[in-house]
């Protein structure tokens, strides 16, 4: 009797767990996958100001790739992406290794390198816009020192404005890489360091040949996180350049939002959003492949 009752209790408690879980999970999954499917669907329609469910084949995609603004935005995603991910990774790893050398004031330095992560990209963008503004910022300062010919006008130059986004982005995110890699460095067995010392291998080579290869999974996580930031980048562009001068610093995320809410090109924006989705899936698949290959290797 008693056993039967306990068994029943157990079953009903398990049921409660599922029932508690269900509402939020169902709502979230509908919100995510329902809207993803909806967006993909709309990208194959003639939707303009309002969604119109008239099948248009790949017309919106053809239109998308004939828009010069999209071309700029798409190319910028790769330029900004490569420099931002590379910059954050190199700088972040260097910072992590540097603070790991038993330097004085380690806690203070780490807090200093990480505080930008607490800020909104809007705040970061405005701060750097002010500092790099040619008429009042860095350029004006160096000129006032007597170097009249000094030019640092990246922010107002269509070719170079994208690099200002990279500077601000690296400033914001390399602290995160530092924190993650620093945690990874701490998890490395001290035996490995001892073995290196016994063999007389210099520290620099130990890092390059032994330690960093051991941290590949951690670095991969960083790359995926940073790459996601690139595809999502919207706030930073809005705050820093507004996509300008002209459309020179446009990114897909901004192109899509502008076309959805300002230009009322819902079909076109959905096509752009679908391309963004593909970009994210490619990143995730690539990282999964790399992980699998690494695991398969003895």
């Amino acid at each position: 009797m008693a056993v039967g009752r306990a068994g029943k209790r157990k079953w009903s408690a398990g049921c409660t767990a599922v029932l508690t879980l269900m509402p939020t999970v169902v709502i979230c999954l509908i919100a995510y996958y329902g809207s993803i499917g909806w967006t993909i669907g709309m990208s194959f329609t003639t939707s303009g100001i309002l969604p119109k469910y008239e099948f248009a084949g790949f017309d919106q995609y053809i239109r998308l790739w004939s828009e010069p603004r999209w071309h700029t935005a798409f190319a910028n995603m790769f330029i900004f992406g490569a420099l931002y991910v590379g910059g954050c990774l190199v700088f972040g790893v260097a910072l992590a290794i540097a603070v790991d050398q038993g330097v004085r004031g380690r806690n203070f330095l780490q807090s200093l390198f990480l505080y930008p992560i607490a800020l909104s990209f809007i705040v970061t963008g405005l701060a750097w816009q002010w500092f790099l503004n040619p008429t009042v910022g860095l350029q004006a300062f160096v000129r006032s020192l007597g170097f009249e010919g000094f030019v640092f006008d990246w922010l107002s130059s269509p070719e170079k404005a994208i690099f200002t986004l990279v500077i601000a982005g690296v400033w914001q995110s390399s602290g995160l890489v530092m924190a993650i890699v620093y945690a990874g460095l701490g998890s490395i067995d001290s035996e490995i360091w001892r073995a290196g010392r016994v063999d007389g291998i210099p520290k620099v080579r130990m890092y390059r040949r032994v330690i960093l290869p051991m941290l590949t999974p951690v670095l991969l996580v960083c790359v995926v996180l940073l790459a996601m930031n690139v595809v999502k980048s919207y706030d930073l562009v809005v705050a820093m350049t507004g996509g300008g001068p002209g459309f020179s610093t446009d990114l897909p995320a901004k192109f899509v939002v502008d076309n959805l809410f300002q230009r009322a090109n819902i079909g076109l924006a959905s096509a752009g959003a679908t391309v963004m989705l593909l970009a994210v899936l490619v990143i995730l698949l690539l990282s999964a492949c790399i992980q699998r290959i690494r695991k398969a290797r003895p």
């Binding site: 996958y33 909806w38 967006t39 969604p51 819902i266 989705l277």
Partner: peptide, 20 residues
């Protein structure tokens, strides 16, 4: 499934979410 959804940029979902 939840985490994959969180990885997708808002832009892909935002308009249908407005309608919902």
């Amino acid at each position: 499934a939840l985490l994959l959804g969180a990885f997708i940029p808002y832009q892909v979902m935002i308009y249908p979410l407005v309608r919902m």
